[in-house]
Design a protein around this nucleic acid. Sequence first.
DNA 1: CAATTTACCTGGGTGC
DNA 2: TGCACCCAGGTAAATT
Length: 297
Amino acid sequence: MPELPEVEVTRRGIAPHLEGRTINSTVVRHHGMRWPVPQGLADTLQGLTVRQVGRRGKYLLLECAQQAAAPVKSGKNSAKTAAEPAIAAPKGWLILHLGMSGSLSLVGPGVAPGKHAHFDLTAGERTLRLNDPRRFGAVLWHPAGDGPPESHPLLAGLGVEPLTPAFTAELLFRATRGRKASIKQVLLAGDIVVGVGNIYASESLFRARIRPTMAAGRLSLARFGQLVPQIREVLSQAIAKGGSTLRDFHSNGESGYFQLDYFVYDRTGEPCKVCKTAIRRVVQGQRSTFYCPTCQK
DNA sequence: CAATTTACCTGGGTGC
DNA sequence: TGCACCCAGGTAAATT
């Protein structure tokens, strides 16, 4: 399942092939994603240039403009003058979400689309192809006229990025005061911090030695001081591990499978790697949580 | 009213 | 082989 690390690795994989290139064609084979793929999207994208491939939480944002950004200026002439060509304002952002079964690949010309290849975007020689068997993913268009991508309804309520300095123990502490929900569910909710999915929530709480069922509002600042670096660590390690498969985007067109060695996730009944106690599974909000009853209090 | 809980979308995998 | 059932992420709707 793509969580933040997989999405970030995907972003890094596709960005070099898309940025600066012009969209030749777009194919929508199935409009029935999480939300309907906008009608007329192919016409909207035709001829636009992908300026930048960004990410917000688990959303990929392809900034599209009418023309390529102005060429890099020489240092000597960098002073702003009236003669300097204006950079075209963005026409909008293509928003992609991989849901739980989606993946992106870059395929060469003539590669036949599989059963679940619902969306193609061709720029240059390569085609960005979205495969998503369960179609929980999304392909949306946010026109520049509606404001920056952060103003999109799906992005507006998102919490801070876990790998930025904005994500601190103080922030988590303040934001959780008065919340009775468990720390696991609060992490998952995404309104305080984004990108911590089911797997990494369990893993980071284990590393921070915090019981997932603890009410978020009762945890001390000191405990968040343990948790925040562990969340950063676990996500960073996963990205680093995925980064090692990035070359596959060049050779095969898609990122290889990668995952960290889990301490607790999906290890019900198996011995804790630290203390040998059997790992337990509980259900919180219809979702499995895994923890060590000895290590996590 | 804000926080929390429930329902829901789909299809691969599993167990009978 | 068939088939009912579970499960997953993240959002909307319902409920407290």
